[in-house]
Design a binder for these strands. Structure first.
Lengths: 112, 112
DNA sequence: CTGCATCCGTTCTGATACTG
DNA sequence: CAGTATCAGAACGGATGCAG
């Protein structure tokens, strides 16, 4: 974990605003497209599609199509995806707990 | 760590490509503007300036100006910034170790 | 249901030039 | 040294309509 240049490359992948949230939503098992769409507040259909395709391309998750009517597509973390999910958990937890502090710091900064 | 909506808010802050790298560069103590510019490969002066200002605004780091000639500005993590750095360490470590695997997955995907 | 294609306004970024 | 200002091109992101 010494090369900042490499870190930068991967942050371009996992540092995506939506990617980490998608990974998080898949932590308890496979989910369908519409389930993800509903549970990730504010994501558009387009962004979810793009994000899922990129994550599939990077080997973070798998996409399984069931040829039934109506169509049914399931997304699931790969083993590598699960290790990513573990690596991001601390950051997400930090985010939640520090949101009020950040908001306060920002308000004070803007007040000057 | 249950509200995905809140998580999304903070990811807009810390999920920034450059922000995590700046935080990482400050882990061993204060650094000057030019030091950061040199050590973060590929960042433009403008992006470093913007990133630093945002992180200062959010209470992640402090900016100290020494009124000497030539000018001297020092950036240092706040206590909150240090907890953020700890929370991001696993993700950065993951990034480094999995970069080859991601590249391989991507190459295979593109080959189809 | 699960997308893809297209349009189009907004935002981001780098390059460049200039300042205290 | 550490910025700010400006500009133009690139990338992002949402809305809409269509398809298997």
């Amino acid at each position: 974990m010494e090369d900042p240049c490499q870190a930068r490359e991967v942050l371009g992948i996992v540092g995506d605003k939506w990617a980490l949230l998608v990974v998080r939503m898949l932590k308890d098992g496979p989910r369908r497209f519409t389930e993800l769409k509903r549970s990730i507040d504010g994501i558009s259909q387009r962004m979810l599609t793009v994000t899922l395709r990129d994550l599939e391309r990077d080997g973070i998750l798998t996409r399984t199509v069931f040829a039934v009517m109506p169509p049914h597509v399931s997304y699931e973390l790969t083993p590598m995806g699960r290790t990513l999910r573990e690596a991001t958990a601390p950051l997400l937890e930090w985010s939640i707990t520090h949101l009020p502090l950040i908001a306060a710091a920002r308000a004070e900064y803007d007040g000057r």
